[in-house]
């Protein structure tokens, strides 16, 4: 249904209808902005990237061949534009390595987060997402939030599905390490308040 709607939007945009472009922008701006923001880590810069993404979409919409979902094509543009932006700023895309994944207990982690107030929990997760590298953030957002398949993520990031699987495994480890680091002090603080 959503895909059919996107196809109709695209046909109108190719005819030069900017009103339909506005509808498409409204539909996807939050997700594209979220991806850009989690990569460049700054609101103003993310909005600049967001603008570049939709200008690119408008200029190149006739080159979208419908092989993949429109959203996948759009996220690929957003990912590449954010990468270009980071490269221009000479900012790092690298990630740190984590080896102590085996010692982590996710059930315990869930208990920890359950005990924190919703507002604090949201803030803590938001901070953790900010600390992840650009590539980890995109991978995590597309997999957990947007619930894309490994094949779709592979198309967005221009990787093979197997590489995505390996990278996702590593990103999960890094995320878990950050969660443990950030949430344990929160729960201690929480007890202090009580």
């Amino acid at each position: 249904m959503s895909q059919d709607q996107d196809q109709n939007y695209i046909k109108s945009i190719i005819m030069g209808d900017t009103h339909t472009l506005a509808l498409l922008v409204e539909k996807y701006k939050h997700m594209v902005f979220t991806l850009a923001f989690r990569m460049v880590k700054n609101r103003e810069e993310a909005e600049e990237v967001l603008q570049d993404v939709f200008i690119k979409v408008y200029n190149a919409v006739d080159s979208y061949n419908g092989d993949a979902k429109f959203s996948t094509w759009l996220y690929k543009i957003a990912y590449n534009k954010s990468l270009d932006y980071l490269k221009k700023q000479k900012r790092s895309l690298d990630t740190f390595s984590v080896d102590d994944y085996e010692n982590m207990d996710f059930a315990e982690m869930e208990n920890i987060t359950r005990n924190i107030e919703e507002k604090e929990r949201k803030e803590a997760i938001g901070k953790i997402l900010k600390e992840l590298s650009a590539k980890d953030s995109v991978l995590i957002t597309l997999y957990y939030y947007e619930e894309l398949s490994l094949i779709e993520i592979a198309k967005v990031m221009d990787l093979s599905p197997n590489t995505v699987k390996v990278q996702l495994h590593r990103s999960r480890k890094r995320l878990a390490k950050l969660l443990k680091e950030k949430l344990e002090p929160e729960i201690i603080q929480g007890y202090g308040k009580k």
Binding site: V25, H30, F33, R38, I125
Partner: peptide, 29 residues
């Protein structure tokens, strides 16, 4: 972990650009 984090990240939600973003973009185009 996947079950736990899926719930957690959805709770955080999406980020939003400035309110007049679409208007500014269309003007530029």
């Amino acid at each position: 972990f996947d079950v736990f984090f899926s719930k957690a990240i959805k709770e955080v939600g999406m980020e939003s650009p400035s309110l007049d973003f679409t208007k500014k973009l269309l003007a530029k185009i």
